[in-house]
């Protein structure tokens, strides 16, 4: 497990193990929701939800999150594809770890599967751990996202031998991290857009081209 993954596991699971934290001394101001903040920060306040649709190069995708009524957790579902060829379908939980006027930091763990078609095809169960750092509340929200994606590759060899057929399995883990920087802008209550740059690393250590994307974000509230 990568250090980032370990950090995020601790980040997400810690609240469940510890006592409920004291009230935030700098609570989020009341008012209309910030769907762009929610989406870019990766977790919504209780009762809120956010859905974002992404298009660009190389990534296309959709992501939804809804705050759950316990432990500050959000349920998250994500389908993301690079050039409609390398597709990841993942679900899991996220939680705001730090939430102040200045900064919102959240962690996220998703699991699911990935399938890549074409000459570099591969498939297998996958996970994604993500750290999201966004500037605090406001109409314009810059955000940095670091994701560490892993896929478990299981290759099966069916071998005929003189003693009978045997099956051998070899397993390996492929890693493909992605870093993104976004700027989100609230257009009107419940609707926002963001634009960003992606620095993916598809098959380390090979070189990957950077990318760019636009998100359409909608959100609701309690």
């Amino acid at each position: 497990m990568s250090p980032l993954s370990l950090l995020l596991v601790v980040a997400v699971s810690a609240p469940a193990l510890a006592e409920r934290p004291p009230p935030n001394p700098d609570p989020r101001p009341m008012g209309p929701p910030d769907p762009h903040l929610d989406a870019l920060a990766g977790a919504s306040e209780v009762g809120d939800w956010a859905v974002s649709l992404e298009t660009g190069f190389p990534f296309f995708g959709a992501r939804g999150q809804v705050a759950l009524p316990w432990m500050g957790l959000n349920a998250v579902g994500s389908v993301n594809s690079a050039l409609f060829t390398d597709t990841w379908a993942l679900g899991g939980v996220s939680r705001r770890w730090v939430d102040t006027h200045r900064v919102v930091l959240s962690g996220e763990i998703l699991v699911g599967g990935t399938i890549r078609s074409g000459d570099l095809s591969r498939r297998g169960p996958a996970s994604q751990t993500t750290l999201r750092l966004a500037r605090g509340h406001g109409r314009i929200v810059p955000a940095l996202t670091l994701s560490s994606r892993h896929v478990l590759l299981t290759d099966v060899q069916e071998i005929q031998t003189a003693e009978g057929d045997i099956v051998e399995r070899s397993r390996s883990i492929a890693w493909s991290p992605v870093a993104s920087f976004d700027v989100g802008v609230g257009v009107c209550p419940g609707f926002a857009v963001s634009a960003g740059l992606d620095v993916p690393w598809f098959d380390p250590p090979g070189f990957s081209l950077p990318g760019a994307h636009i998100n359409l974000i909608v959100g609701g509230w309690k």
Partner: peptide, 18 residues
Amino acid sequence: TRRFLASRFPAPLGLIAE
């Protein structure tokens, strides 16, 4: 050889090597 070539394209172009 297709795999070899695709792996040498800068990613993600190797994903759409053809």
